[in-house]
């Protein structure tokens, strides 16, 4: 049985086509766009909430998108255990929708950062990262102004205790140097999982790194890990 990916498109999404290209063209998966006003996710096996600037980032990144009609369905799917990946603005939307804990703040140095960074896989105990190795370093681009992840001390402890930190910013050797944490995120956090493990939010853009021509194909390793799990399941 084939796995169908659904990419949710909000007004202001701008990585929806990159995600489509990565999944459909490069990974060869059945992929569909889903307009944010739609209310039907039937037949979708994996939901992707792409990057961009939904609703122009008005009020707070992701704050308004979370009230789009499709988000009720996303919430239902989340509760049913459907895998959901939020990339960049998608991560911000998942935080605002309370599907993941914490909040995003402006990058500490106030600049929008668009460059390749290194992230380290922190857990292989999730459907998204099972195909990676613990401490595996991936070279993946980031592109955000509000990616400074914040969570209370108690919240952070919960994330750590339940192995919910999926990726941390590191240097090329996998070291958690202060410089590597370019946006000031709590505990170098680049990506987290929900407690149940079916939702992943991450600021880096694996869909922008799926071919050598794009500067890195490490995003492909990420998608392969995901596919081995989801398709093989």
């Amino acid at each position: 049985m084939s796995t169908t990916f659904g990419i949710i498109v909000f007004p202001g999404s701008n990585c929806d086509h990159d995600a489509f290209y990565a999944l459909d063209e490069v990974m060869g998966m059945e992929t569909k766009f889903i307009w944010h006003k739609d209310t039907d996710l039937s037949g979708i096996d994996v939901i992707v909430i792409p990057g961009g600037f939904s609703y122009g980032d008005y009020l707070r990144s992701g704050a308004i998108a979370r009230f789009s009609p499709i988000m009720n369905e996303v919430e239902k799917a989340a509760n049913e255990g459907v895998p959901i990946i939020g990339i960049c603005n998608g991560f911000q939307i998942l935080l605002e929708a309370n599907l993941l804990p914490g909040a995003m703040m402006h990058n500490q140095q106030l600049r929008f950062v668009c460059k390749n960074v290194f992230i380290r896989c922190e857990t292989t105990d999730s459907i998204f990262t099972r195909g990676l190795n613990k401490d595996q370093v991936l070279d993946i681009p980031v592109s955000h102004g509000e990616g400074n992840y914040f969570i209370s001390e108690d919240g952070l402890k919960e994330l750590q205790d339940h192995d919910q930190i999926a990726f941390r910013y590191c240097d090329e050797h996998g070291e958690l140097t202060p410089e590597a944490n370019f946006n000031g995120s709590v505990d170098h956090i680049a990506g987290i999982l929900n407690r149940k493990g079916n939702i992943l939010g991450l600021m880096p853009h694996p869909e922008r790194a799926v071919e050598p021509l794009l500067g890195s194909s490490d995003g492909r390793i990420f998608f392969e890990s995901l596919l081995n799990r989801v398709v093989g399941a």
Binding site: L59, R60, A63, I64, F67, E96, G102, A103, M105, F150, I151, S152
Partner: peptide, 8 residues
């Protein structure tokens, strides 16, 4: 519900 994010 919308205007403020209680986390921060």
């Amino acid at each position: 519900q919308l205007l403020a994010n209680a986390v921060v």
